[in-house]
């Protein structure tokens, strides 16, 4: 039975493709973008997170843990020894306040399909469907493929939100079941791309070109991160690439936001853009104008 690791399922998702959608978030991503607003999605395996504010110091987690991985410091705050923790999830079950949560549920295709099908009435009415996002769904290609096929059997519209950093073989295997690619394009300069996402952009650009040549329906999505990729130079290169190499008509520009800062705390990760503020509406409008010069229809927000 094919299973995958899913870290969230969001209903009434209205900015990830047409209509009212359900978005399935896959765990694991090959990129480590500094601005990532789902940092819990990056690691490939499941993780246990702890929200101190909800903890009522009942110690049930400590009592339940058979690995003796949980200890308490002087402030009455639990800490978990990741060397001992086997991610068995017992402590999460014992934690009634939901202070301890497991990020990444192992699910079967049937389990995910059951969730997707719950909102079919809304897809029908709105021309919506399902969006596979992440993380990077192509990291769990077999699981993704099985879900896409199951959706197509039931005539459910599918979108895949991808960073594009996957082998062509993988993309090629799923593309016939995908109605819409939501394709993220972050930086045209390879060195900057490596710096801010951790990987080169060559494969990403090649895959995008290949998908475009095959005539796929692609919505290009550019997150606008001040100080990272919002300079005119990068925007002009992006516009030129989209218009001349891809023959795309439409791009979405998504303003950066920092609502995920406290998620980094909970994951004990460092947020590299803590000084960065969201772009002003005026700047977003200017960016839209720059891209419009390449004959692109630009939408601010997804």
């Amino acid at each position: 039975m094919i299973t995958g690791l899913v870290f969230d399922i969001k209903k009434f998702s209205i900015h990830d493709g047409p209509g009212i959608r359900t978005t399935i978030f896959f765990k694991g991503c090959p990129l480590t973008c500094w601005w990532c607003h789902n940092p819990e999605s990056q690691a490939v395996g499941a993780e246990i997170v702890f929200g101190q504010g909800k903890c009522i110091r009942c110690h049930a987690c400590l009592v339940r843990c058979e690995q003796e991985a949980i200890s308490w410091n002087g402030d009455g705050v639990a800490s978990t020894d990741s060397q001992k923790c086997t991610l068995c999830g017992q402590c999460v079950e014992a934690c009634y306040t939901e202070a301890r949560q497991i990020v990444g549920q192992k699910m079967t295709v049937a389990q995910v399909m059951e969730k997707i099908e719950e909102d079919i009435a809304f897809y029908d009415e709105s021309g919506g469907g399902v969006t596979f996002s992440g993380g990077e769904p192509l990291l769990q290609r077999n699981f993704l493929l099985a879900l896409l096929r199951a959706c197509k059997e039931k005539e459910i519209h599918t979108a895949v939100d991808t960073c594009g950093f996957a082998s062509w073989e993988k993309l090629d295997s799923i593309r016939e079941y995908v109605d819409l690619f939501l394709y993220d394009l972050k930086l045209m300069d390879d060195a900057s791309h490596r710096k801010f996402t951790g990987v080169p952009n060559k494969l990403i650009l090649e895959n995008l070109q290949a998908l475009s040549q095959q005539g796929h329906n692609i919505a290009l999505r550019i997150p606008i991160i001040p100080g990272v990729n919002d300079d005119d130079e990068n925007l002009r290169r992006t516009g030129a690439f989209a218009a001349t190499s891809l023959h795309l008509k439409r791009v979405d520009i998504l303003p950066y936001h920092y609502t995920a800062i406290d998620k980094y705390d909970r994951l004990h990760k460092v947020y590299g853009l803590s000084e960065t503020r969201p772009p002003l509406d005026e700047r977003m409008a200017e960016i839209a104008q720059i891209l419009q010069k390449f004959d692109l229809q630009v939408k601010i927000g997804g």
Binding site: F12, I14, G19, I20, A121, F122, E125, S126, G128
Partner: peptide, 19 residues
């Protein structure tokens, strides 16, 4: 906020009434 959002609200209402 947007016109699209209003459409989604219409869809939400229509679906509730369909049910």
């Amino acid at each position: 906020k947007d016109d699209d959002d209003l459409d989604k609200l219409v869809h939400l209402v229509r679906t509730y009434f369909k049910l």
